[in-house]
Design a protein around this nucleic acid. Structure first.
Lengths: 228, 228
DNA sequence: TGTACATCAGTGAACGCGCGTTCACTGATGTAC
DNA sequence: TGTACATCAGTGAACGCGCGTTCACTGATGTAC
């Protein structure tokens, strides 16, 4: 049955490609890399719908169009593939942060700019974010801890950024972290809300973004009156 | 192997009980109810560790000490049992809300009282809350939607309560919901933080509670300055 | 350039395993007289 | 109170299925001469 699938989907194509265009995917290494990518992409898709624990090796191989045994040419087991997914998803998070900082936004537009960056990245890397959001709460303990650690790192960097702002500048470090944590909590919840919005309802997505902006504003309004 | 388990665990007990004390669990209906409870309790425990999707009927039956087939005397399938778990967990949530309202706290102590109630209930009904927290993000879509609906109900009730407080009294309904949503987000995140604290580290739990109190205070401090 | 050998991504068959579900059954509890 | 029959929670065997993993293999790509 695998050979049939292969004929129908990949096999014929491969033959025709190699004979007709002698260019890009000629090399064995390139072909291997392409299969690896397909495995990661398919896993990300399947996992988003049902959680990593419910992913099966055979199902994944079927999706990609290879034999179950061929999977082992790329990963030692499913857990290893899971860890690679986490790394890639963190890459997505990192690029979001870089974006947010690169823009050199004046303090009065920080909230709008941050929410914009958030919405844009969740749109662009939906599968990665959905994976992180799911496994943060529901995943096995290895996945969960590594995601949580990365979030703490995020919180620390945010704290450093916050320390430059008026009022907050004079706060003790502990309170700074409390504020950073509240903002991260709000952001994470907003990501989860965004992921729940069906793709065909952009107006609902706008509502979620609006709400996030208002909530962050409310938090910021409290800042000057802390420890009165 | 089942018969051995049964002899070792339940079977012998049952015999001795029925012969020695002729009281409580004599009746067939009571015995059935006890098994049903055991199924629900064992499921709640197993699910907390690995997620509902990873729960298997045979594993559950093994844990409870009955034959896999006997499961069907109590539930049509695992999904039905899942829905009952959701109902029970919402019961836990409801009792928390009732507690919170029954206390008739003066406004200036509302935050402390609410966080206390939250911490206490997460302690007492840890398994239920863990189940809800897990399946809220990671569960199958039936579980997820029903949990989410219940949270929205919670948010609405909170909005009604908030509408009685100074400053907030004059807010438009939309903004009221934004505030209620922010508070619920913070509470849900705090529950997740509390569930991550190992049972043998009460001092860490205190830190999480402190942080929640401060964060809610920060939000409330912003309230009088909204739409300035 | 052409040939002979090495590499290795992917194949397909096989394995043992735990799963959900069905079925006829058993024997203690419950009920009618 | 004692007996005969009904109920039904739990049994244990059986089924077909998808799973992860292993293995010897194939044949196209890559390399050395």
């Amino acid at each position: 049955v695998y050979s049939k699938l292969h004929e129908a989907a990949g096999g014929v194509n491969v033959t025709s490609i190699t004979s007709e265009r002698p260019s890009t995917d000629h090399s064995r290494a390139e072909r291997k890399e392409r299969t690896r990518r397909k495995l990661l992409d398919a896993a990300l898709m399947l996992v988003g719908e049902r959680g990593f624990a419910a992913l099966s090796l055979r199902e994944l191989a079927r999706e990609v169009g290879i034999t179950p045994a061929a999977f082992y040419r790329h990963f030692a087991n499913l857990d290893q593939l899971g860890l690679v997914l986490v790394e890639e998803a963190f890459g997505a998070l990192g690029s979001m942060l870089r974006d947010a900082r690169a823009e050199q936004t004046p303090p009065e537009h920080l909230i709008d700019a941050s929410v914009d960056v958030l919405v844009r990245h969740v749109d662009q890397q939906r599968d990665h974010f959905r994976f992180l959001a799911r496994e943060l709460a529901g995943g096995d303990s290895t996945l969960r801890t590594s995601i949580r650690k990365e979030l703490q790192l995020f919180r620390s960097e945010l704290a450093v950024d916050l320390a430059r702002l008026p009022f907050v500048r004079e706060w003790p470090t502990d309170d700074l972290y409390v504020l950073a944590d509240l903002i991260v909590k709000t952001m994470v919840s907003t990501v989860q809300d965004l992921l729940d919005v069906p793709a065909d309802k952009p107006e609902e997505k706008r509502l979620v973004a609006d709400r996030a902006r208002k909530q962050l504003t409310l938090v910021v309004l409290g800042v000057p009156h802390w420890r009165p």
